[in-house]
Write a protein that binds this DNA or RNA. Structure first.
Length: 247
DNA sequence: AACAGGTCCAACCGCCGCCAA
DNA sequence: ATTGGCGGCGGTTGGACCTGT
């Protein structure tokens, strides 16, 4: 429990910022409960953490959101809801607080502004008709780590030059990108489903019915054939499914 | 110039999940 | 199984700033 009667509150001074920055640079992030004592600050651990993450941390981007950032926020919010930290994680230099504040201010603006943004987005979006096999939606397993951004460690994985066939979740730590970054990218090469369950189909099946899908929608061959448990985790979360089927 | 209302955003607060004891 | 400490998150607040009258 924080001893709120003794710790300082309110705006941070330049001196406090310097002390905190020096302390984090010396001891690293984490162990926030030790930071106030180590830095000689009369602040609670949460206040120190918040100040570092939202203001002092290097590479934090200031100023207005660019058009592509706004577009990404809208798409991610549709997919993830108010998961500000997850959304901010896909916007380099932006903090969850920034994204949250931006979204809240966006909500306050007139509906016409939002409609204009949507119209702009729709115009830029190239709807592609492809023939795909649709997996059925079902809840994600708790052990499924994609949504948390944590790396998975498949039993076997052979890197290929063509990374488009590889689930981001199976990439090396250096090149791994959250799966939904791929889901949301607009690369022309990625506008088709590349494969389906268990790697049976490397191309969309032309004999199946035509479906209209968002250009971002892709299905990966994510399975480790030596590890049947992988199959249990191949599922589309309901909100993702709704997102993919939205107009 | 002065005031009121609106907007922005840094900071606070309470809650939750995780983990170790 | 329970409890307490901690990190992390999202919602909310309040003050500074902006804009219109």
């Amino acid at each position: 429990m924080e001893r709120s009667f003794s710790v300082r509150k309110g705006a941070w001074t330049e001196e406090e910022d310097i002390l905190l920055k020096q302390c984090v640079e010396t001891y690293g992030e984490g162990k926030w409960f030790q930071i106030p004592h180590r830095a000689g600050l009369n602040r609670c651990r949460k206040s120190c953490r918040m100040r570092w993450l939202n203001y002092l941390k290097p590479n934090i981007k200031r100023g207005d959101f660019a058009a592509d950032e706004v577009d990404l926020i809208m798409r991610l919010h549709k997919l993830l809801g108010n998961r500000w930290s997850l959304i901010a994680g896909r916007l380099p230099g932006r903090t969850a607080n920034d994204v949250k504040n931006f979204w809240n201010s966006l909500l306050n603006k007139k509906e016409t502004s939002i409609l204009a943004l949507k119209a702009q987005k729709k115009k830029a979006q190239d709807i592609v008709k492809v023939k795909v096999i649709k997996p059925q939606p079902r809840p994600l397993s708790k052990k499924f780590t994609w949504l948390s951004g944590k790396p998975t460690t498949p039993k076997s994985f052979v890197p290929e030059d063509n990374m488009s066939n590889i689930s981001p979740a199976l990439m090396s730590s250096e090149s791994r990108i959250n799966w939904w970054e791929y889901l949301l990218d607009d690369k022309e090469d990625d506008k088709r489903a590349t494969c389906s369950v268990s790697g049976l189909d490397k191309e969309p099946n032309k004999d199946l019915g035509t479906e209209i899908i968002a250009p971002e929608a892709r299905v990966w061959n994510i399975f480790d054939e030596d590890d049947p448990s992988c199959l249990a985790d191949f599922s589309f979360e309901k909100s993702l499914w709704d997102f993919l089927n939205a107009e």
